[in-house]
């Protein structure tokens, strides 16, 4: 099909929207990337990292520390990751396959705040 193209991690991956390929649901942003070194000592991307523990250090400063600190306080230890082999397409968004756990905050807000309100499970009318 098309020739292999060079993907620039900073330009084409970081801060892009991650979308579930199956149904187009929005998953997260590429908050940070996990790198490893190959045999020649060149870095390559192994996973997409998400959540405040990944984003906080990139924001930096007081706000960044606050963001990461709040997540740790709530029991997070490492940022959730999506291995690169799940990535199926990189364009305006990063499309990923597989099933993903809903993030902790979404899960908490859903069960404690949104679902108790009548109509939360229905389509809009």
């Amino acid at each position: 099909m098309t020739a292999a193209r060079v993907v620039h991690a900073q330009l084409h991956l970081l801060d892009r929207q991650v979308v579930r390929a199956r149904d187009g649901r929005l998953v997260c942003k590429v908050d940070d990337l996990e790198l490893a070194l190959d045999d020649d000592g060149r870095p390559y991307v192994t996973a997409i990292l998400m959540g405040p523990l990944a984003l906080g250090p990139r924001v930096g400063g007081v706000l960044g520390r606050l963001m990461a600190g709040a997540a740790r306080l709530l029991g997070a230890t490492a940022p959730p990751r999506i291995p690169m082999e799940h990535v199926s397409r990189i364009a305006g968004a990063v499309h990923v396959g597989g099933d993903l756990e809903p993030p902790a905050l979404e899960h908490w807000v859903r069960t404690h705040l949104v679902e108790p309100i009548p109509g939360a499970r229905h389509e809009n009318e």
Binding site: R25, C28, K29, E106, V109, L113, V114, A120, R121, E123
Partner: peptide, 25 residues
């Protein structure tokens, strides 16, 4: 939602976009 990459919008059920609806509330 768009800054943090959360699911947003009225095209899904409210429970699917919990953080979005919570923000509005």
């Amino acid at each position: 939602s768009q800054y943090f990459g959360w699911q947003w919008g009225k095209f899904v059920r409210p429970r699917e976009a919990a953080r979005f609806h919570a923000t509005i509330l």
